[in-house]
Amino acid sequence: MNLTTQYLQRSRALLDTIDAQTEAIQQAAQWFSQTILAGRMVHLFGSGHSRIMVEEMWPRYGSFPGFNPIVELSLSFHNLVVGANGQRQAMFLENVPGLASRILRNYALSAQDSALVISSSGSNVVPIEMAELFQQAGVKVVALVTRQHAEKSISKRADGKKLTDFADLILDTGAPVGDAMLTIPGLDTLVAPGSTLGGVVLVNCIKAEVARLLTEAGQPPRVLSAANVVGAERAVTLFEGAYDEHAHRLAKLYQHVGIPSYVSEQRTLPISPNV
């Protein structure tokens, strides 16, 4: 059997693992839709390659506002690999205690919010602390991990706790320990990881279920759609409307954050649509 066929077979097994989590996916969608219907946001966080799942959720074609992608460049911009902004620094920073609290200091959280925290190993400090801080604020936390890999991983946190210890719901990408899925004769290390594939499928399943719930509640989402599907004029309207809605939701996270000022207490006057 060639390697391509082997990878495809193992990928189908990931889909089976995800299919078995339908009830958990629907629960996550229920929490997320409640947050969005309340005018709040679902916070998305992942460091390293977990950023991929954050950006897959929003903003991209087939997605809609209601999600707050928290992407820290210091933890995920490492495509130079070495030198300034390299991978070594990113891997170091994602295990610095206290960084999560500095990130979340930028937002006024609410118990109406919910969160999706992604970490394949579930053992790095920053995503663990993010989930912990979300829970302390009364925010429901969905953790997306690779269960087998996370169970075998050693937490970088001093008390040994992992992301799954601060999750109200756990989703599993289905990838194996170590993530890579293929053995090549003569090579003593595995290649071709699976967690990203499993993670992307999971977030899109959640996205679809949330869209259904919003539509059933009478608030169909503004979905970013291609012009060659919905027409050029409607595509522009959807994009502009979706981005504006994102701004309006985000404003609520900033308006009353931290130390009050006369600006935060000031009644907002309506703005002319022609401005």
Rank of each mutant, 00 (worst) to 15 (best):
L213T: 01
E209A: 15
L238G: 08
L190Q: 15
P193W: 09
L238M: 08
Q219M: 11
V200S: 15
G160D: 06
L171V: 07
G218M: 08
G231P: 06
V201F: 08
L213F: 02
D244F: 13
T183L: 12
F239R: 11
A251G: 08
A227C: 05
A180Y: 05
G218S: 12
G174F: 05
D168C: 03
H248E: 13
V230P: 05
L253Y: 12
L182N: 03
V236E: 13
R234I: 10
G218P: 10
S225Q: 07
L250H: 04
L197K: 00
L182H: 04
P176R: 08
V229C: 04
L187V: 15
A227Q: 07
D188N: 15
K161V: 00
V203F: 06
Y243Q: 11
G241C: 12
R212G: 12
A192R: 00
A251T: 05
V200A: 13
F239I: 13
G198V: 09
C205H: 13
Y243I: 14
L190Y: 09
V200H: 04
L163P: 06
E245Y: 10
A242N: 01
A251R: 15
A217I: 04
V191S: 08
E216Y: 00
G178M: 02
S225W: 00
A251D: 13
P193E: 12
G241V: 11
L238S: 12
G241L: 08
L169K: 02
D188G: 01
A232Q: 14
A235K: 04
T215N: 09
T196L: 03
V236F: 04
V177F: 00
L182K: 07
T215H: 04
D165L: 07
G241D: 13
T215D: 07
E209N: 08
L202E: 02
C205A: 15
K161A: 10
E216N: 10
L202Y: 07
G174I: 05
K207R: 14
G160C: 09
D172E: 12
L250A: 10
A232R: 11
D168V: 04
L202C: 09
E240P: 00
A211N: 10
D179V: 00
D172W: 09
D188R: 12
